[in-house]
Structures are given as C-alpha cells and as structure tokens.
Design a binder for these strands. Structure first.
Lengths: 211, 211
DNA sequence: TTAGAAAACTGACTAAAATCATATTTTTGA
DNA sequence: TCAAAAATATGATTTTAGTCAGTTTTCTAA
C-alpha cells in the first residue's frame, strides 16, 4: 500500500473506544476483519491447558491485530484484551482479501511484516526455553522500555499488572513479584505505585546475557 | 503457483546431496535463495547465549527453508543442519522476488503458509512456557509420529539423537534421557537401538493434557 | 468514606529440573 | 578389529521455580 493506502483505508473507518480490561476478540473466534491500534496497548494471549494465559505479544499504535487469522482463514488462535484505554479501528476482511489479490506490492509488504513477526516468535521460543525466569523478567523490562518508551520521570509508558508481567514471562505471579522485589532492592529498577522504571539498564542487560 | 509452478521451478534446478550432520546454512548467513527439501530431514536451530542449540523446526520433504530471511531481506536467524542424508534443491532469490511481485496468487499462497508457521510458533511459545519438560517430551514424540510417520515396525521414521530431542524440547540432555527411560519403563514408548517408537499413544496424550 | 474485593507481597515448603560426576554402551575411523 | 571418541545412562546434589497459606496494601463501588 502501502503506508499511504493503509492509512487511507484506516482513516475512512470509524474508530472505536475500548476501555482498559475490555476484550476485543477471543481465542477461537472467527474474525471477519482486522483491528488497527490507534492508541493504547492490547495484550494478545493464549490460554494454556493449566488455565494460565500466556501473553504472546503486546500491540500498540500502528500495529494490526488478527491479520494472521484473516489471511490463513482460520479462527483466531489468540485473545486480544485492552491493557490500557484504547482506540482501535476495524477493517473488514473483504477489503483486505481483495487488495491482497490485486495489489502485489501491498501483499509483499504484509508478507515482509509477517516474516518479521515470525523471526520475533523464534526468538521468543529460544528465550523461553533457554533463559531463566530472572533473565526473562529482566528482558521483559528492557523490551517494554524499548518498544513503548518511558514517561518524563523514567517510568515505563505501559503499566502492566504483576500478573500480566508474569504471563508475558511465562511464570507464576509470586515468582515474578519476588524477582521484581529483588531487582528493586538491587537498584536495577525503580517503582512508584504500579509504575515500574528501568534504573540500571546495563545491569539488566548483563543479567540477560548471563553475567 | 502454485504447486505446479513451484514444482516446475524446483525440478529445473540441480538437486544436491547433503550428508547427515552436514550444514546447509548458518545463523547470521546472508541467503541468496531458498532451499527445498526433496528428501531427508533438516533441523532448523538457533544458538542461545548459554551455548545450547534450540531446535525451532524440523523440515522434511516438500518444505522450504530460508524463505523468511529471503523475504524479510535479513540474514538468517536459524542454522540448518541435516539430521539424515538429504536431497535439497536451491532456488535463487531473484526468481522468487520476481515472482512475488508478478504473481499475486503465489504471494498470497506464501503468505498463507507463513501465517500458518506463525500460528505454530505461537503454540510452541505457549508449550514451552506452560508445560513441564515431561509433557514436552511426550508431545515431541507425538509430533514426530504425526509429522514424519513411522516404519513398518512402528518406530519413528526420523531418528534423532537424545541431544537433538533435548534441543527440540528445550531441556538438558540428561533430563531428556531420564524421561525417555521412564517412558520406556512405563511402556509409553519402545526403543530398539537409537530408534524410538510410540507404544501407548493414549497415555502420552493424557500426559500432555495434564492427567 | 468506607467495607469489600482485588492486587501485591512474604514466608515456608515442595517439586521440578539443572548440574556435576562417573559409568557403560555404541559408533567410528585408522 | 580395536582404541578412542561420542553417545547414552544413572546417581547424587544443588538450584530454580512452583505451590500453598496467609498478610498487607491498594483500588473500587456502594
């Protein structure tokens, strides 16, 4: 499109407000379109057999949710729930499938994007299986800082509950809390209410690298 | 293409023999084409910081390796090593990129395929983070049986070393061996030399589901 | 504003898996 | 065919993370 065309399509649609905690779509649901995030952050998660949610991805402004399912013509393998108040717009399936077949450049663009997502997914697999919970928590904070930025006081712009952080990392909430306490005590991070900020990026990085 | 066109392109190329254990491409390498597997099985793995390989995918007949990197125009995030003697053929980048822009149906086909891979990757992430090592080992055997079949005597067609199995599952080799011994003792699997066969599929399935 | 609920936290204990050490078996190449 | 190397196996121990139980703090809605 790519950027321009997507923007045009997106702008033409009515944007919808979603309150924090509200669901956008559910695992198993048939999606008849994709959702573009205009503002706010959504968690994309999958329920595991033991009843825990695993957060696979966080989507923020400019990102598209549900395209995998629409393209593969499968029901969604993930649920999307707002982590903060959001603005999203909806693009119906027909328009997309149509464009995919008519505009090769757009399709290649989408393909590239998905190739990138796949690489990220590979990286997550390796992290999950080869790194300790402590390393993964450290990495999560670095990722949140890098991807969503921080406010004027150096706190992460996205505020996740401890449970959500645990679900990103793939660990028990209590374990996650313990590690957060430890990091705080060691001065790697700082907290203010629910807000968390990276205080010593180098130390966190060293930890992730295994030092 | 799609099937036909891919086959045509593929057939026109010289197929190359790869001996078991030989490398096809390395992590970080720039690929100027993709590899189609004609025969045999290859492991696609990524080296983690602690020096262990994580096997992300096993590719067999009909599967294409390296397309993610070629499409995203990035160097490969994975290494490919033959797990058995193989026949592979090489399709140069140019031909692919060209076709992608000229043949939208082909591109959509590739896109669908990648969407599918992405879903599988999401599932792996959840398994890795939410299931026990024992469950993952059980799942690995079921996956190997389902994906690559078994011989006339009921042994898995792909023979992986214990270390490779451990690297698929994301665990220490010793832990993997212990679990294999346990499964054998309980009659869930049978072995004959290096060969492993599923002996009680139901029990393995129950274990994966958490019973 | 305040009671009740939810989230965050802490401690004690248990279970799972990694690590280290070493033995045994299998494979391989000279 | 035989010695060395690699793979497989097993035991003992330690580390890591999960579970359970209970407390404190924070948030929320009547």
């Amino acid at each position: 499109m790519s950027k321009e065309e997507l923007k045009r399509v997106s702008d033409s649609k009515i944007s919808k407000s979603i309150k924090k905690g509200q669901s956008i779509f559910e695992e198993g649901e048939k999606l008849n379109g994709v959702f573009c995030v205009r503002a706010g952050v959504s968690k994309l998660s999958k329920l595991s057999a033991n009843g825990k949610d695993q957060i696979v991805k966080l989507a923020s402004k400019g990102e598209v949710m549900g395209q995998r399912s629409v393209i593969a013509e499968e029901s969604s393998n993930l649920s999307a729930v707002a982590v903060s108040d959001m603005e999203v717009c909806f693009i119906p399936k027909e328009g997309i499938v149509d464009t995919l077949h008519k505009n090769p450049d757009f399709t290649v663009e989408v393909l590239r994007h998905m190739a990138h997502d796949l690489r990220e997914a590979d990286d997550v697999i390796v992290n999950m299986s080869q790194k300790s919970v402590k390393q993964r928590v450290a990495e999560a904070f670095l990722y949140l800082k890098e991807s969503f930025g921080e406010d004027s006081e150096g706190f992460l712009s996205v505020t996740l509950s401890r449970e959500d952080i645990a679900n990103v990392v793939g660990t028990a909430t209590e374990s996650c809390i313990r590690i957060i306490s430890e990091f705080k005590k060691k001065g790697y991070i700082k907290t203010s209410g629910k807000k968390i900020g990276v205080a010593n990026e180098k130390k966190l990085r060293d930890l992730v690298e295994g030092f």
